[in-house]
Computed example of a mutant assay.
Amino acid sequence: MMKKTIVVAALMAVSGAACATANTDTEMSEKVAARLAEFEPTGKVETCLSTVRVRSIDALDDYRFLVRTGVNDYYLNEVSGRCSGAGRAGNRLQYTISGAQLCRNEIIQVVDNTTGFMVGSCGLGSFQELAEKPAKTE
């Protein structure tokens, strides 16, 4: 079976400084909480997503990824442990899979774009489906 390495152009939603403001390692920064406040959980949880559907993976911080699978289809993935450096600008995410799905427990690597060195890695959690909240009208 052929393995594919996929590099994800991770849009960094928070800077390293924003991550450093959290009181504990897993506590959400205000910026991450504000981004996630745009959504509400649907209650649906997936263990795998087809890689054909994955449009982008946005590292909100070292613990949470926002996965976009369509125009307005999103999933939250809370990784097991810490994905050191994932939320830092200048880093990218990549993963190697042997099939056509990205699943819970797959290893995501964080690579420094400047040096090409791996600076962190983590195992994915389950994919929690999110629905965008309607825009507030005033």
Results as ranks from 00 to 15, higher is better:
C83Q: 07
D61Y: 08
N105R: 08
T114W: 06
R53Q: 10
S56G: 05
Q94H: 11
E106M: 12
M118S: 13
L60D: 09
G70A: 09
G87L: 07
Y75K: 02
D112W: 10
A59Y: 06
L93Q: 00
L93T: 09
T114F: 12
D112S: 10
D58I: 15
M118Y: 04
A100S: 14
V111Q: 00
M118V: 08
G85Y: 04
G120Y: 03
N77M: 02
I107S: 04
R68F: 05
T114G: 06
R55A: 05
F65V: 10
V119K: 12
S80M: 13
D73I: 08
L93K: 04
D61M: 13
N91E: 02
D58K: 02
R53I: 05
V52P: 00
L93I: 13
G116Q: 02
S98E: 15
D58S: 06
G116N: 08
I107T: 15
G125L: 03
G90W: 08
S121A: 10
G87E: 10
Y63E: 11
Q101C: 09
G99R: 02
A100K: 15
Y75R: 01
S56K: 10
N113V: 08
R55L: 08
I107P: 05
R88H: 14
L102A: 07
R64K: 09
N113H: 00
N113Q: 07
Y95C: 06
G99L: 04
L93V: 05
V67G: 11
I108G: 01
E78C: 13
Q109E: 14
V119E: 03
S84Q: 12
V67S: 11
G120K: 07
R92Q: 09
S80L: 11
G125S: 04
Y74Q: 02
S80H: 15
M118Q: 15
Q101G: 03
T115G: 08
V54W: 00
V67Y: 08
N91Q: 11
G87W: 03
L60Q: 13
S56V: 11
F117N: 14
R88P: 09
